[in-house]
Simulated assay, not measured.
Amino acid sequence: MRRSPITAGFFYMALGVLFTVFAVQEVSSSGWGFLSYVFVLLATLDFGSGIRMVMLHLKIKSSENKKK
């Protein structure tokens, strides 16, 4: 059984929020260090993947509706 793109999209967005929280905590405790940049990079990639998955889901639903 495969996961739908919308499920994967929300999962990636949740990870993006989590890494953003980690980045904010890291910056507030010790400033902009290497780990802060890693957290920001991971959050950016996760948000991008999440948006891409949600858009893929909408495109699939749109093509299914046009076939009917």
Rank of each mutant, 00 (worst) to 15 (best):
L18I: 13
L42I: 10
V40G: 01
T7H: 11
V54Y: 02
A23G: 06
P5I: 04
V24P: 00
M53H: 12
Y37K: 07
G16P: 08
V17N: 07
T20P: 00
L58A: 15
I51Q: 02
G50T: 08
V38Q: 07
R2E: 15
L56W: 01
L35W: 12
V40F: 05
L42F: 11
Y12H: 15
S4E: 15
L18E: 12
M53A: 15
F19L: 05
S49Y: 09
V21G: 09
R2A: 15
V21P: 01
A23C: 09
A8W: 09
V38L: 15
F10H: 14
T44M: 03
K59P: 00
F19E: 08
H57D: 13
S36N: 03
F11G: 09
L18T: 12
G16E: 08
R3Q: 13
G50V: 02
S28H: 11
S63E: 10
F39E: 05
R3T: 13
R3F: 14
F47C: 08
S4R: 15
G33K: 07
L45P: 03
G16Y: 06
F10R: 12
S30L: 01
Y12G: 05
P5T: 11
M1Y: 13
Q25P: 01
S4W: 12
R52F: 10
V24Q: 07
E26G: 00
F22P: 02
A14F: 11
W32E: 07
S29C: 02
G48D: 00
V17K: 10
M55H: 03
A23F: 04
V54E: 02
L45V: 06
L58M: 15
V27R: 05
D46G: 00
S28W: 11
R2T: 14
G48W: 03
R3W: 12
K67Y: 01
A14R: 11
N65C: 01
V24D: 04
V17L: 09
E26S: 08
L42Q: 06
D46R: 06
L41Q: 01
L35P: 00
G50K: 00
F19Q: 11
F22G: 04
I51N: 02
L41P: 01
A43D: 05
T7P: 02
F11P: 01
E64W: 04
I51H: 04
F47K: 06
L56I: 04
G16S: 13
V21C: 07
L15R: 12
L41G: 12
S49V: 01
R2W: 13
S29V: 03
I60V: 09
Q25W: 14
V40S: 03
V21N: 08
I6T: 12
G31C: 10
I6W: 09
P5Q: 11
K59M: 06
L42G: 00
V21R: 10
W32T: 08
S4F: 14
L58W: 10
S36W: 02
F47N: 08
D46L: 07
S29G: 03
K68F: 05
K67G: 00
S29L: 11
K61W: 08
S4N: 15
R2Y: 14
F10A: 05
S62F: 04
Y12Q: 15
Q25D: 07
F34E: 05
A43T: 06
D46M: 14
S49Q: 08
V21W: 11
W32A: 08
S63V: 01
A8R: 14
F34K: 07
G33A: 05
V54A: 09
